[in-house]
Nucleic acid binder design. Structure first.
Lengths: 228, 228
DNA sequence: CCGGTGCTTGACACATATGTGACATATACT
DNA sequence: AGTATATGTCACATATGTGTCAAGCACCGG
């Protein structure tokens, strides 16, 4: 069962970005464009996590958060606040209200995804897979370790995140742009060709013990992890 | 290649609502505020689906629907009628005219989205699904793979797009010009004969495992994928 | 059965995408 | 500071895909 995330955010572009990234990391999502809608959806189905915009139309995010905490069935529901305000005072008020984490806009997608994972791991450890296995490759997020056929493999940070990204959806082809977005973050600018180099490094590392190439090149489309 | 939906609706608020929700779900949209405008836009570019208001200024929806059905190139175009009238008689008249579905205002957005998906899945499954099956051929867009009778088939980028295009409308015959437009893009100039070569390559690849030719040559008209 | 038109297909020159070693910086650790 | 490790780019070699042509085949109407 996929973790279900409610996105309470009125800016369409931001909501879409969140939805896209969450879904590709294997979450189920719903979007509420204002505070009222958020409350309605919360009544319909309790999510596993709420991403809550601070300034939400109709009912402000902080009020939504308060109401979430006041109802018994959602009292322990993890909430991550999104806000454009950077003032420390607000931050403290947000955490006081019971938000579990706090991210200021503009945020890096990869960072937010990491926070989402972190919060869920803390509150609902069972929902998050810490160890993913595809074929003979094992990725352990808690220890930051990769093994192939039992043998440990050393990967640099970027190669690790790259493999971690691929392993979310084995077999699926990702364009260089998607990989740059998901692995490097949508805010940094690097050449698309750089992806090739890192894929090459990842390949070399994964094949260092003699196995065959687990990454498939799809000409004019991108790369994918062999599903099997 | 997003599904393209034409919204023929004069009430701006409703049209906006539809547009917002459709675009959020990954559709491309255009709005026509009256019947004349709808007909003009239909001539310019044939959409994948039309949302058609019953009471449309200048040319009423039911008449637009009739005209859509009478033109060969739009005869099978999916149409969903929107209306405030709830009378059974109208409903029947609407379906008689050839609407594929019928939604009464006020409608729930999620319900309408579900109907849109349902109609498109029925009429043009290939637009919605990321895995399409025609006969013994399976095209998977997410993994960029093609299999026939379970055996993997390697296609170059152009051949893949060509097959993907054919599979949108199994059985339908496409002229070389249509294929150039749809597969290569309307901006590049290549010889019509080139289509022949690529069709040949696609055939060879698809028949490499011994199956029979899934593509039909229609002399002096073009090519089509055998519907079954 | 013949001629003509349209289609198929192998060859090939050219275009484009990808793989990879080298290198100059950046960053982290001691 | 000094060392080790990572990173992003480039340049060039290689692999793969593309468009065109032309010779030969298939089909159709007479």
């Amino acid at each position: 069962m996929k973790p279900f995330v409610l996105i309470a955010e009125d800016e369409k572009a931001v909501a879409e970005l969140l939805r896209y990234n969450l879904e590709r990391e294997g979450y189920e999502t719903a979007v509420a464009p204002d505070g009222d809608e958020a409350m309605i959806q919360l009544d319909e189905r309790v999510p596993d996590l709420v991403l809550l915009d601070w300034m939400l139309p109709k009912v402000p995010g902080i009020e939504v958060c308060r109401r979430i905490r006041s109802k018994p069935e959602t009292a322990n529901l993890p909430v991550i606040m999104l806000t454009a305000r950077t003032e420390e005072a607000d931050r403290i008020r947000g955490l006081d209200t019971g938000a579990d984490d706090y991210v200021t806009k503009p945020f890096s997608t990869t960072e937010l995804m990491a926070r989402v994972r972190a919060v869920l791991r803390r509150i609902r450890p069972a929902l998050i897979e810490d160890k993913v296995v595809v074929g003979d490759i094992v990725v352990d997020r808690t220890t930051h370790t990769v093994t192939r056929n039992g043998e440990g493999i050393h990967l640099g940070p970027t190669e690790f995140r790259l493999l971690d990204y691929f392993i979310q959806h084995p077999g699926r082809v990702f364009s260089r742009e998607q990989l740059l977005d998901g692995v490097w973050g949508s805010d940094v600018y690097v050449e698309a060709r750089t992806v090739d180099v890192h894929v090459g490094r990842l390949r070399k590392a994964l094949m260092s013990n003699g196995g065959d190439d687990p990454i498939r090149t799809v000409r004019s489309a991108g790369y994918s992890l062999r599903a099997n």
